[in-house]
Measured scan of single mutants.
Amino acid sequence: MLDDRARMEAAKKEKVEQILAEFQLQEEDLKKVMRRMQKEMDRGLRLETHEEASVKMLPTYVRSTPEGSEVGDFLSLDLGGTNFRVMLVKVGEGEEGQWSVKTKHQMYSIPEDAMTGTAEMLFDYISECISDFLDKHQMKHKKLPLGFTFSFPVRHEDIDKGILLNWTKGFKASGAEGNNVVGLLRDAIKRRGDFEMDVVAMVNDTVATMISCYYEDHQCEVGMIVGTGCNACYMEEMQNVELVEGDEGRMCVNTEWGAFGDSGELDEFLLEYDRLVDESSANPGQQLYEKLIGGKYMGELVRLVLLRLVDENLLFHGEASEQLRTRGAFETRFVSQVESDTGDRKQIYNILSTLGLRPSTTDCDIVRRACESVSTRAAHMCSAGLAGVINRMRESRSEDVMRITVGVDGSVYKLHPSFKERFHASVRRLTPSCEITFIESEEGSGRGAALVSAVACKKACMLGQ
């Protein structure tokens, strides 16, 4: 009897593995994704193909990295998701002549009506938060230079001027797309009239992360975010950046690689679950690469896999709870928690219980395998993109072996128990001629924006502006 049951459990697990095998990517698959990513990057950089390229390769006008001589107080704003952060950054000489960066910050959550109302409502709310922060720190009387981390696709015309191309991540505030974001912020500050600010720089969160990590390690020339969304930036040779005049030196390019796949480059790798996630998203047909990796989508992918296993009578005796059938019910943090389970399955059992399920031991094991399959594919897909960037940098610099540091931020990278190990191992397999160091950014977005502002202020002083 026991043997029969054991055989049935083994057969069930084997069927589960057959279904989950769809998520496995072979090294040849990853090399294919990497080569296609490089081709799209090239198209994004070139003037004649930029418009139709899915990977936009947006110039950021960040050319210099901090040298350690900029000092002063800077205000930093960070808008990239449902939370908005205001930070005071003091850049100065530390002990023994070292450079020191001290920060104080406060988080504000953005109400739904500000995210989806008008641009005026959104930026009025942001300036209200700045006003509140300055009151708390008794700094209303000071006109501070301000660095703005704005983590949406922007076409820069200068370091302090950028046109919002399109909202992502659930934002829909009308009247912002096609307009200068810094102008919208300046107008809102003017409307309030109770404080003055000098907006000197606007950067993407990947750029802010790279600059913040450069402060720790001067070989950091790539910034990457794996959180709600997924994106990367890197220092490109100016001669390859056709959208900006000049051939000397390097400029940081914001790849906006989340949109890779929007022209069909990933079609052969998309599964039924991916198509369902895409169809029910706020932007169907867009940001397809990001939807395979980002935390906004990972939990939902797992939920759809679990429903398939229920329908195949391989999980929960073929019956799903009402909660499990509800879109968004299986949160991405559950994926991390399930994979963090120590082996007694308590954590998995508790999560499934909150979803109205009474799982068996085998159910718990199957749910864990589903989570591992989805998150491992995410790590491997992400590795193909980064390997594409790094191999490109090595080739354009004609280096036999390139040493490089990548600064990384984002909740999936930082909080998932195995993502970074799987990701690092896969990147290294795909970049055999590179020695890569990964560092995690601390308060990256805010500190990085302030350091970019410090560079901009120093330049302005040198130019006598």
Rank of each mutant, 00 (worst) to 15 (best):
L2W: 11
D3V: 07
A10C: 14
A10Q: 10
A10S: 09
A11T: 08
K15M: 15
E17D: 12
Q18F: 14
E22L: 07
Q24V: 12
Q24C: 10
E28F: 09
D29C: 14
K31S: 11
V33G: 12
R36D: 08
Q38I: 08
K39F: 09
K39P: 06
M41A: 07
D42M: 11
L45S: 10
L45C: 05
E48D: 06
E52C: 09
E52G: 08
A53V: 04
A53P: 04
A53S: 06
V55E: 01
K56Y: 03
M57A: 04
P59I: 00
Y61E: 02
R63L: 08
E70A: 10
F74K: 02
L75W: 02
G80D: 03
V86A: 03
M87Q: 00
L88D: 03
L88R: 09
V91H: 02
G94C: 11
G94W: 09
W99Y: 14
W99Q: 07
K104Y: 08
H105F: 08
I110T: 05
I110G: 05
P111C: 11
D113F: 10
D113R: 11
M115N: 01
M115P: 02
G117M: 04
T118V: 04
T118N: 01
A119V: 04
L122K: 02
L122Q: 01
F123E: 06
D124G: 06
Y125P: 02
Y125F: 06
Y125C: 04
I126V: 11
I126F: 06
S127A: 09
E128W: 07
E128L: 08
C129T: 04
D132N: 09
D132I: 04
D135G: 05
D135T: 08
H137V: 13
H137Y: 07
Q138E: 02
Q138N: 14
Q138L: 10
K142T: 05
K143M: 02
L144I: 05
P145T: 14
L146W: 02
T149E: 06
F150P: 03
F150C: 02
F150L: 05
F152R: 01
P153V: 01
P153I: 01
H156R: 01
D158Q: 03
L164A: 03
L165G: 01
L165A: 01
N166T: 10
N166W: 04
W167H: 05
T168A: 02
G170M: 03
F171W: 07
F171K: 02
S174R: 09
A176Y: 03
A176Q: 00
E177T: 08
G178A: 08
N179A: 09
V181H: 00
V181G: 00
G183S: 06
L184G: 04
A188M: 00
A188C: 00
I189L: 14
K190G: 12
D194V: 03
E196G: 04
M197W: 02
D198L: 07
V200G: 05
M202R: 02
V203I: 07
T206H: 00
T206C: 08
A208F: 04
S212Y: 02
C213S: 08
E216D: 14
D217I: 00
Q219N: 04
V222Y: 01
I225M: 08
T228R: 00
C230F: 00
N231I: 00
N231D: 07
A232H: 00
A232P: 05
C233A: 06
E236N: 01
M238N: 13
N240E: 13
E242G: 04
L243R: 03
L243I: 00
V244T: 15
E245R: 12
G249C: 08
R250T: 09
M251H: 15
C252T: 15
V253T: 04
V253Q: 05
N254H: 00
T255K: 01
G258D: 00
G261I: 09
E265T: 11
L266S: 13
D267S: 10
D267W: 10
Y273C: 15
L276G: 15
D278W: 04
S280R: 14
S280H: 06
P284Q: 07
P284N: 14
Y289W: 07
E290S: 04
K291D: 07
G294I: 02
K296S: 15
Y297F: 04
Y297N: 01
M298Q: 13
G299M: 03
E300V: 03
L301H: 12
L301M: 15
V302R: 04
V302K: 07
L304A: 12
V305W: 06
L306A: 13
L309E: 04
L309C: 15
V310R: 14
D311A: 06
L314T: 11
F316M: 08
G318E: 13
A320P: 15
S321C: 13
E322R: 14
L324D: 02
R325L: 09
T326I: 14
G328T: 14
G328D: 06
E331M: 00
R333H: 14
V335A: 13
V335C: 15
D341T: 14
D341G: 09
G343L: 12
Q347M: 09
Y349K: 13
T354Q: 08
T354I: 07
T354D: 11
G356P: 06
R358Q: 02
P359R: 10
T361C: 11
V367K: 08
C371A: 12
S373T: 11
T376L: 10
T376Q: 10
R377Y: 00
H380L: 12
C382D: 00
C382F: 00
G385K: 00
L386F: 06
I390L: 11
M393K: 14
S396F: 10
R397S: 10
R397K: 15
S398P: 13
S398I: 09
I404K: 06
V406N: 00
G407A: 10
G407N: 06
D409Y: 09
G410V: 01
Y413W: 09
K414R: 14
L415F: 11
H416P: 05
P417I: 12
S418N: 11
K420I: 05
R428G: 14
R428K: 15
I436R: 04
I436T: 14
I436H: 05
E442Q: 11
S445V: 01
S445H: 00
R447V: 15
A449H: 01
A450G: 07
V452C: 15
S453L: 06
C457R: 12
K458V: 13
K459Y: 14
C461R: 13
M462T: 12
G464W: 08
Q465M: 04
Q465I: 10
Q465Y: 11
